[in-house]
Design a protein around this nucleic acid. Structure first.
Length: 590
DNA sequence: CAGCAGGGGGCGT
DNA sequence: CGCCCCCTGCTGA
């Protein structure tokens, strides 16, 4: 349970979400959760905290954070936001609306929805949160249904919480709790609650949009704008289709459909040689041409025989939460039977050691022909189908400072940093080619903790955590701050000295955002995605790879090498992209 | 520091 | 649907 996320405390978000997704994949196939991570945004009453048990606080966080992630496969809608703090449209009415009719089998309206905050509030208590969390909360706290049952034959254990079953499996059966992973994901009662709340949300949003046909304040709708393909004009910057699970938005339905598939568990395609699974056919081809290029590629063999077809454009319009993939069903009985664990397990078998199969070829095919350095005339490799091998040792991207050349533009960007050293220490003359090295420098030489997102230097981890929370709305699992103190701009006084600095940085970021180019937007979108949610807080330990690149297009773009601006240091090594685009077009491609 | 594979988005057909 | 491009994490030198 979520003692760590209970009233008066806030669980933290510190896990790199890329890792999280990998962890999810692992956990879904049977590993035990071992990483404590919390998901904030919902405050739960003491009743929930009394649920199972003897978990330690960090395990509560796991139970509430990772359990939701692991058991669902993905975080609840809205969680995957760069800025997790719910956005409130100042122009919107701040009103909670409940459904007209109660959910029949539950005899409750479950929750009301606030379109301004894009949050739900439990109908039976004051809990507020995103849809999935409130649905889980209500089912576990206020429903009489013990919707989650132990999957083991003959065991009558049931709980209103999936994590209760997980705990039961581990405690009473000494079984792998991952066997219950499917419970939350495939639970009909929870599905029904979710659909019910989703309908309410859609209705409220639709009504709101009808009243306010062009608000101009649709940014951030990615977390909540309807289900699946929300075509109500609530997209990011007016995009027509907005993902419910991440900030993605697009005007093209086919792109949206394709995007939706990344939030699904199934990977309908596979490499028929190594059995590795993919969610896109073109990825199979790319994989094939990288790994098995000496074998004939057969498009007709890449679709897994037992795979469900990927969502088509025709089906994607139906409201669908990304991790509640079951089709609408009859309202479930109060007690819901659960399927055996095995039935929910994908028939995935880990691919054999792919790398061992790899032909001993040198630098490979022109997998990526970056735009930055496209030659005036396409190279033979670029003009050829990807299957055409480039000559061994062929160089493509050359450094303008040395004789180095690399296989792709990204290598060039990284290499250029070794010359430009764009990560400058604000306290001395030190410059580093990589963010993590600067972080290590700052930590060891100046005994400071550097913020990954702005120039702020904290005296210690706690201060950094305060800063991240107050200035960047990023919660640290090392910082448990009473909710009431949030947003005060200087919790505990620890932040008072640097609030201005952080604010300035944010202002700079905001100013830079307007200049973001297309690629900048893409980077921003990616950065604003799940990974950013979890990735920063351990950064100050000097392990720089935990840093996520800030949306650096405008705000943190390093100055040209001779006079680097106070670039705010801790970008990853990809501080170079825009910089390079602006200043190094003379780096030619062979 | 760099090579590489994988994954995701945009775009053209 | 396929291609191109970008980005990230992993890994080894």
């Amino acid at each position: 349970m979520e003692g760590g996320a209970g009233v008066g405390s806030v669980a933290s978000l510190t896990m790199d979400c890329e890792d999280m997704f990998k962890e999810i994949t692992k956990k879904l196939y049977g590993e035990e959760t071992s990483v404590g991570v919390g998901v904030v945004g919902v405050e739960f009453p003491a009743a929930e905290r009394d649920l199972d048990d003897d978990l330690r606080p960090e395990e509560h966080i796991t139970a509430w954070g990772l359990a939701a992630l692991m058991q669902n496969g993905f975080p609840p809608p809205g969680i995957l936001q760069a800025n997790f703090t719910p956005r409130i449209d100042p122009n919107a009415e701040d009103r909670w609306t409940a459904a007209e009719e109660p959910l029949a089998w539950a005899h409750s309206r479950i929750a009301s929805y606030n379109p301004a905050q894009r949050l739900f509030k439990c109908a039976d208590c004051e809990c507020v949160g995103f849809l999935a969390r409130v649905a889980e909360h209500w089912l576990g706290t206020h429903s009489q249904a013990r919707a989650f049952q132990c999957p083991l034959a003959g065991c009558g254990f049931a709980s209103g919480w999936a994590r209760g079953v997980r705990s039961h499996l581990a405690r009473d059966h000494h079984s792998d709790p991952a066997a219950a992973d499917h419970l939350l994901r495939d639970n009909p009662a929870l599905d029904d609650l979710t659909r019910y709340l989703q309908r309410l949300k859609n209705k409220v949003e639709t009504m709101r949009n009808e009243r306010r046909p062009s608000t101009g304040s649709e940014a951030g709708a990615g977390e909540a704008a309807g289900a699946g393909a929300s075509a109500v004009g609530a997209g990011e910057a007016g995009k027509r289709y907005v993902c419910n699970a991440c900030p993605y938005a697009t005007d093209r339905r086919d792109l949206f459909t394709r995007h939706e598939n990344i939030h699904r568990d199934e990977k309908p395609f596979h490499c028929y040689l190594c059995q590795k699974q993919f969610n896109r056919a073109d990825h199979v081809k790319k994989h094939f041409l990288r790994m098995h290029r000496d074998q004939p590629y057969d498009l007709n063999r890449i679709r897994r025989s037992n795979a469900k077809p990927v969502a088509s454009a025709a089906t994607s319009a139906a409201p669908a939460l990304h991790y509640y993939t079951k089709p609408p069903a009859e309202p479930p009985p109060a007690t819901v039977a659960v399927a055996p664990a095995a039935s929910a397990q994908p028939d995935y078998r880990p691919a054999p050691a792919v790398k061992l199969e790899r032909p001993l070829l040198g630098k490979s095919e022109p997998s990526a022909v970056p735009a930055l350095h496209k030659p005036a005339a396409p190279s033979p490799a670029a003009a050829s189908p990807p299957a055409v091998r480039r000559k061994q040792g062929e160089r493509r991207y050359a450094c303008c400072y040395c004789s180095w050349s690399g296989v792709d533009n990204w290598c060039l960007k990284r290499h250029l940093n070794t010359h430009l050293k764009p990560f400058a220490c604000a306290l001395c003359e030190y410059k580093a080619a990589r963010a993590e090295r600067l972080a290590t420098h700052v930590h060891k030489v100046h005994n400071k903790k550097a913020c990954a997102k702005c120039p702020f230097l904290a005296d210690d981890q706690h201060q950094l955590a305060h800063h991240l929370r107050d200035a960047h709305h990023i919660e640290s699992r090392n910082l448990k701050v009473p909710v009431g103190m949030r947003g005060t701009g200087g919790a505990g006084g620890a932040t008072a000295g640097f609030a201005a600095s952080a604010a300035g940085a944010e202002a700079g970021a905001a100013a830079g955002a307007g200049a973001a180019s297309g690629s900048g937007r893409r980077r921003e979108t990616r950065a604003a995605g799940a990974a950013r949610l979890f990735g920063y807080l351990e950064a100050s330990d000097g392990s720089g790879d935990e840093y996520e690149a800030p949306a650096l297009a405008g705000e943190f773009a390093p100055a040209p090498a001779p006079a680097p601006a106070p670039h705010y240091t801790r970008d990853k090594e990809n501080a170079a992209p825009l910089h390079h685009a602006l200043h190094h077009d003379h780096c030619l491609r062979y």
